[in-house]
Design a binder for these strands. Structure first.
Lengths: 136, 136
DNA sequence: ATAAACAGGACATAATTAGTCTTTTAGAGG
DNA sequence: CCTCTAAAAGACTAATTATGTCCTGTTTAT
């Protein structure tokens, strides 16, 4: 239960690598993919998702590549994970889709809400700066 | 991310139903399945898993069925979930399989350990008694 | 014996994950 | 304006996991 998918793992590796680079350093996708050991085409998809929501900025053409969208201390692990894995929802009944209306009062509901909040809270407190700190 | 599977949901529904019955009341699988709206054959698998670790006791033959293995206040949601979903592990690197040795120091590691602990903690504090309380 | 009920294994199907491949779009430089 | 570079986008494929089903056995009460 609760497993981060490989995509999520790759996403973290990739963006942490970017965060560890000097500010405004444009990185080639191919270089990132090699460095963090992720299939380039797969990482491309992930970075496209990052790009759409501004976690990274992309430049096309010669001299192009990727740069972190904001300062590493202003990007949280929660944002990164939710960008590729979708919202953190331990149980469908938390999304309020009416799934839970089986019994009028589902006693488990508040538990899942609690789990969701705690996890989001933990991930929201970790920034890319911390994750990128003192790497080789 | 972090979704409980349907199996996990069914497991909870099924055992909460049992917990809501009068103590030592033997319940037919077919009745439970109908009551909680889960395919009987699927629920059978789930209850087999419960049975193996003593969360429920099973009786075969005429008059057989299932009974809760312990008092409902002594069975936690964590036990139920882990019984069918396996251990709560947000990331492979938490299991210590050496996956994380890509970089000698994975800064994300302590975060996942923290997530794991918090979630287990929350689920461990909820008992079947609470979940079964005042149901229709 | 025999009928009731769970146990266990093999199987089937659908959904999701994990990628790949091809074409398009954008920018830089000659 | 031509071409080369690099990301964007979409269609496609393969592998894995989730979600069941089915059949055969085993236990037990009557």
């Amino acid at each position: 239960m609760m497993e981060l998918t490989r995509k999520g793992e790759y996403a973290i590796r990739g963006i942490v690598y970017l965060a560890a680079q000097p500010a405004e350093q444009v990185c080639l996708l191919s270089d990132i993919a090699t460095a963090v050991d992720v299939p380039q085409t797969f990482l491309a998809k992930i970075f496209q998702q990052f790009s759409k929501i501004g976690l990274v900025r992309s430049y096309r053409g010669t001299g192009g590549g990727f740069v972190l969208g904001r300062a590493p201390e202003r990007i949280t692990l929660l944002e990164v994970v939710e960008a590729v894995e979708g919202p953190i929802v331990p149980n469908r009944c938390v999304t309020g889709e009416g799934e839970c209306s089986r019994t009028s009062t589902c006693n488990a509901h508040p538990v899942w809400v609690n789990v969701q909040e705690q996890v989001r809270d933990i991930l929201a407190k970790v920034t890319l700066k911390e994750l990128a700190g003192n790497q080789d």
